[in-house]
Design a protein around this nucleic acid. Structure first.
Length: 719
DNA sequence: AAGGCAAATGTTTTT
DNA sequence: CATTTGCCTT
């Protein structure tokens, strides 16, 4: 491969970024400006032109999906697989480091990862042992607080004693939690990063090894790095490595979970000899959409400042629909999607975005009624489901019966007569003897310290796990998993469960066996089960299984980041909903909401609809919200209001009745169609009302605004 | 120890 | 409004 193919089709700033030979590089990449492209091509450039060995390159992303995509695209561009190059998430890389240097990191060799669900259980346990009132101190809040501290790199020992009662209590919980994790040899997600940082801080020789190796470091989504990740990066880079950071301060929407946009601002200071390149040409959207996006984000202070522009035409206006209520809003969207689909477009090219998951219900109902297939992103992910986590706990116990987290989780699932009283005895013994729960349980059985019934129940559980782990080395992974769900009784428990939920759980368990069958170990020479469990702990899998059907996509604005769709609806453009009510007290939070609006708008390629409801029932009570300030920030020239006057909440028959006429199969016209009227001139059809000869049509005329006409007498002509 | 009922609670999400 | 959580009863 020659140089020209790497630079082929890059614009000037992109090429500048790809070929920059300053020590460090900061790429400020606006939405849709070819960010990943630059990253991938820069890696290719280094390998092909600068003769850098893939072994010396480290590429960091935030999600597993992004990591996979990056590797794929590099492989594709270079036409070969890059062995030796490290590509992964911050957490994945930290895990890898801690696995290799567990002794230096002061961890047990087979340390386990706690996901947020496990973490919450653990926090609850600690709080209970401290006799804290869970009403007064919600465990969720404590968990949140602890993670917040860890994201800042603060251990309990670093935090000033004293302060108010709240702080003192949180600190006490933090201490107890830290101690318990230490004792059990488990680490949570934030700990993964913090430990990896401390590993290097406290072991200069280990750090030096990696500094020697990784002379080229590239970071994607740089605006999402937190304090620990930034410190980790600086440490690794040292004085000699070359760092490329790619990000967009305007798309920083994860401040609430510790991300620091400021990292972008301090980059040029902390990494001297930096070249900064701005990518402002957008290859995604029409200029009308960009005009709106730019206008919204312009209101934020302290931006690095970018202005997206495009070669593309201005495209269609942004439609603004003022709905009567949320049902009307949903019906309108379903309606437009119906037309979209009828015009021969793919449904999967359309997305409905919203601020909070709760909004999806009404939208789903409307889509269901209109018989429009949809796919919803959100909710639980595969490996986070209760039944899956239970099955995995059995697998973990098979591997290591001293895994207390797994033990606690499934010792009485399915119910086998081991209740809270019995368990408390086991816990106590474990605490006194400083052993695992498993060892304590074994001791209690052999020493017959409890009632016969409890002893038998525990003995049966021990027997079960022993039996399953006995065949560990003989069987392939999928059969291990199958054994686990069969023998443990998990699957029959869910079969007995009535309703769809039980069936779904059975199917999920079966799917787990399938996933085990498809699992490919990274290192074929090592046992497969631990590798599987680690992978699953770091990547909770997809949210949605079936990808086969052509379906409209529903998701939150947050999960839409990084995606693009020809047709986008943003629903619920109302004050208090978006920007969310709870973000209005602090100004920093409002700026983040604004960035979220910017992210949402820039998802749209061709057509953007913004909708809001004048009345919306929220938690059962009606609320009246005015249109979102973000809508008001968009220049009037690019907005086309779709306002249906004198049309109040039409009866439920609307969807069935009017929908048909919306297709235009009876009228000869379609929504959005250009028409001519002999008095009013040219206009666009916005809506139909009713059926037959008395059907009325709403037309937005260029000169006189929106008029409602009787279709039969209006004598409209198609343009 | 398990099932039923009342009360609380409800941004955003990855690892 | 709808779902989840915890408490209470059997």
């Amino acid at each position: 491969m020659d140089v020209t193919s790497i630079l082929h089709n890059l614009n000037a700033p992109q090429e500048q970024a790809v070929t920059s030979d300053k020590q460090h590089l900061l790429v400020l990449a606006g939405a849709g400006s070819g960010k990943t492209r630059v990253l991938v091509h820069r890696i290719a450039w280094k390998i092909q032109v600068d003769n850098v060995s893939p072994y010396g390159i480290l590429a960091v992303t935030f999600t597993n999906k992004a990591a996979r995509e990056m590797r794929e695209r590099i492989d594709e561009l270079l036409g070969m697989s890059l062995r030796g190059m490290w590509v992964g998430t911050f957490h994945g890389l930290a895990h890898r480091l801690l696995k290799s240097h567990w002794r230096d990191a002061k961890l047990p060799e087979n340390f386990q990862i706690l996901d947020s669900d496990d973490q919450l259980r653990m926090v609850k346990r600690v709080m209970r042992s401290m006799d804290l009132d869970e009403q007064r101190w919600p465990p969720k809040q404590a968990q949140w607080w602890i993670n917040g501290q860890k994201d800042e790199g603060l251990r309990s020992a670093h935090i000033q004693e004293g302060g108010d009662l709240y702080l003192a209590t949180m600190l006490r919980i933090y201490r107890g939690y830290e101690e318990t994790c230490e004792r059990l040899g488990v680490i949570d997600f934030a700990e993964l990063l913090l430990r990896a940082l401390e590993l290097w801080k406290h072991n200069p020789s280990v750090l030096e090894h990696y500094q020697q190796r990784f002379k080229h470091i590239l970071v994607d989504e740089f605006q999402d790095t937190n304090a620990v990740q930034y410190a980790w990066l600086r440490l690794l880079a040292g004085k000699v490595s070359a760092v490329t950071a790619v990000g967009d301060d305007d798309q920083s929407i994860y401040g609430w979970r510790g991300a620091k946009v400021e990292n972008i601002l301090s980059y040029e200071r902390d990494f001297p000899d930096t070249e900064t390149v701005k990518l402002e040409q957008n290859y995604r959207s029409t200029s009308n959409i960009l005009l709106a996006a730019n206008a919204v984000i312009a209101k934020n202070a302290g931006r690095l400042g970018k202005n997206l522009w495009t070669d593309a035409g201005e495209g269609e206006a942004i439609a603004l629909y003022s709905a009567f209520n949320e049902h009307d809003e949903a019906r309108y969207i379903a309606d437009r999607l119906h037309s979209w689909s009828n015009e021969g477009n793919r449904r999967e090219d359309a997305a409905i975005l919203y601020r909070s998951n709760a909004q999806s219900r009404v939208l789903e109902a409307a889509l269901l009624q209109a018989e429009i297939p949809y796919r919803i992103y959100g909710g639980q992910r595969f490996y986070e489901r209760l039944e899956i986590k239970n099955a995995l706990s059995y697998l973990r116990l098979m591997l290591n019966c001293h895994d207390d987290v797994a033990f606690e989780r499934v010792v009485n699932v399915p119910p086998r007569g081991i209740g809270e009283r019995t368990l408390e005895l086991v816990r106590e013994l474990a605490r006194d003897n400083v052993t695992s729960l498993w060892s304590a349980a074994v001791a209690m059985v052999t020493e017959k310290r409890m009632a016969a019934r409890a002893t038998n129940a525990i003995a049966a559980f021990i027997e079960l796990v022993n039996e399953m782990s006995g065949q560990l080395d003989e069987l392939p992974l999928a059969e291990q998993a199958d054994n686990a769900i069969q023998h443990s009784g998990l699957i029959s428990m869910h079969r007995r469960e009535k309703g769809e939920r039980g069936q779904a759980r059975v199917e999920n368990l079966e799917e787990l066996v399938g996933a085990c069958r498809n699992f490919e170990a990274e290192d074929r020479d090592l046992p497969v089960l631990p590798q599987f469990l680690d992978q699953v702990a770091l990547d909770a899998g997809d949210r949605q299984a079936d990808e086969d059907q052509d379906a409209v996509q529903l998701m939150t604005l947050h999960s839409a980041k990084g995606l693009e769709f020809p047709l986008v609806f943003i629903a619920g453009m109302e004050e208090n909903l978006f920007p969310h009510k709870r973000s209005l007290d602090e100004s920093g939070q409002l700026e983040e909401e604004r960035r979220l609006a910017y992210v949402g708008i820039t998802r749209a390629m061709e057509k953007l609809y913004l909708t809001f409801a004048e009345t919306r029932s929220i938690y059962g009570t009606e609320s009246f919200n005015s249109v979102s300030r973000f809508v008001r920030d968009i220049p009037k020239e690019v907005i086309e209001e779709v306002r249906i006057q004198n049309t109040i909440a039409r009866p439920t028959s609307y969807a069935a009745g009017a929908m048909r006429s919306d297709q235009g199969d009876e009228t000869g016209f379609q929504l959005g169609q250009q028409v001519n009227h002999n008095v009013y001139g040219e206009g666009v059809i916005l809506n139909f009302e009713g059926n037959g000869p008395r059907a009325r049509v709403h037309v937005s005329f260029e000169d006189v605004g929106t008029k409602i006409l009787i279709l039969a007498s209006a004598n409209l002509a198609a343009v």
